[in-house]
Computed example of a mutant assay.
Amino acid sequence: MTTSSKKTWFVTGASKGLGLLLVQQLLEQGYAVAATSRNADDLRRAVGTGTPETFLPLQVDLANEASVGRAIQATVAAFGRIDVVVNNAGYGLIGSLEELTDDETRQNFDINVFGLLNVLRQATPQLRAQQAGRVFNISSIGGFSGNFSGFGVYCATKFAVAGLTESYAAEVARFGIRATVVYPGYFRTEFLSAGSVSTPQQPIDAYQEVRDTQAAHEQEINGQQPGDPAKAVALLIEISAVEQPPLSLFLGPDAYQVAGQKIAAVQQDMEQWKVQATATDFAVA
């Protein structure tokens, strides 16, 4: 068990991107960290720091609940408790809804949604027994607004993350557990690189707009994202310590802009049809 008085974190998808930077900052600040990846050796090399007393690299198949359960058990055995869970693992999928096969779609849901649910199901009994814990579920601004051509399935997975986080927060509040859904905008990580985003195996020529979106993300946006991921993970660490963390956390000026546009559009639709849409109850005698 760690002798550090600081909290123990459990972070998925930790071999690159936001997850990797988060683990590195946590270790530098003396936290105990259990981190997951599909390959533990790759994770050790990527992190490049930490001791057995503070760092537990775990090879986990998030789509396999038994594998996730073993990781949670190993974390508790090593550090005695889990204070903060960060469901960061996930990957992008660019393709129109017509193009993407059932297998491609389900694979995206398996990692982005069901893998996250596996972690929640396995970690919550520990958090509940402690009567304390923080959970950060990483969605995307594409989980708040789906107005992104070619990202329909990916957005659907991230909308699911947002919805289940809100319900989870309501379910576990009485146990002292606080949950936050995080909506990042564009941050300069490997998210748009070949290993982190998939495209249709059977593209359809008619969807030129989707191909243009794909090319723009791969050739123009990748490596030029405005967000500094180091600042994003520093904010997560800061928020983990506050008494009442936000249920919804938008990260980046671009995320705020998109969210504001979505909120305004919803309000406009509501007002436009308010009279008719609120006249749908049974008539009172």
Rank of each mutant, 00 (worst) to 15 (best):
R106A: 07
Q268Y: 04
G227R: 14
Q59G: 13
A241C: 12
D41M: 06
D212L: 12
I94M: 10
L251H: 07
I204W: 02
R38C: 03
V33K: 01
F191K: 01
S149N: 07
E99D: 11
V197C: 14
V182L: 04
D61I: 00
P200A: 04
D42R: 15
S167W: 07
C155D: 12
Q29E: 15
A66M: 03
F144A: 09
I138A: 06
A160S: 14
E243A: 15
A215F: 02
G195E: 05
A259I: 12
I72F: 13
S248M: 05
I111Y: 01
Q219S: 14
A123I: 09
A162K: 14
R174I: 02
D269N: 09
S140Q: 00
G95I: 12
V284R: 12
C155L: 09
Q73P: 04
G115Y: 14
R134Q: 09
G163F: 09
I221R: 15
G48L: 00
G163V: 06
L18C: 01
A34F: 04
L26N: 03
W9T: 02
G133Y: 08
G133D: 08
K6Q: 08
P229N: 00
R121F: 02
V181Q: 03
I177G: 09
D205K: 07
I221L: 12
G50R: 03
E271G: 09
Y31H: 15
P203T: 01
V153G: 12
V258T: 13
Q29W: 03
Q208R: 13
E166A: 08
A206E: 10
N108H: 04
A194C: 00
Q73H: 11
K16T: 00
A169D: 12
R44L: 08
L97P: 06
G92F: 00
G152K: 04
F151C: 13
A194Q: 07
E218Y: 05
G252Y: 02
A71E: 06
I204V: 14
E220H: 11
Y256D: 12
A173H: 14
F175G: 09
K274H: 10
L236P: 13
S4Q: 06
D42G: 15
A285V: 14
P203E: 03
I204N: 08
P125Q: 06
A160H: 02
Y154F: 10
R128A: 08
Q261C: 01
A241M: 10
G13P: 10
K16H: 00
L164D: 01
L192E: 05
A160M: 03
Q107H: 11
L116P: 03
E166S: 07
A78S: 12
V135S: 06
S167F: 06
Q25P: 08
Q268I: 02
G176K: 07
V113A: 06
A46D: 02
Y31F: 15
G95C: 15
V47A: 04
V113W: 05
L192Q: 10
E65T: 11
F282T: 11
K262Y: 03
S167H: 08
A230H: 11
S15P: 03
L247S: 12
Q261V: 00
F148G: 06
N147T: 09
Q202P: 01
L120I: 08
R188Y: 00
Q126R: 10
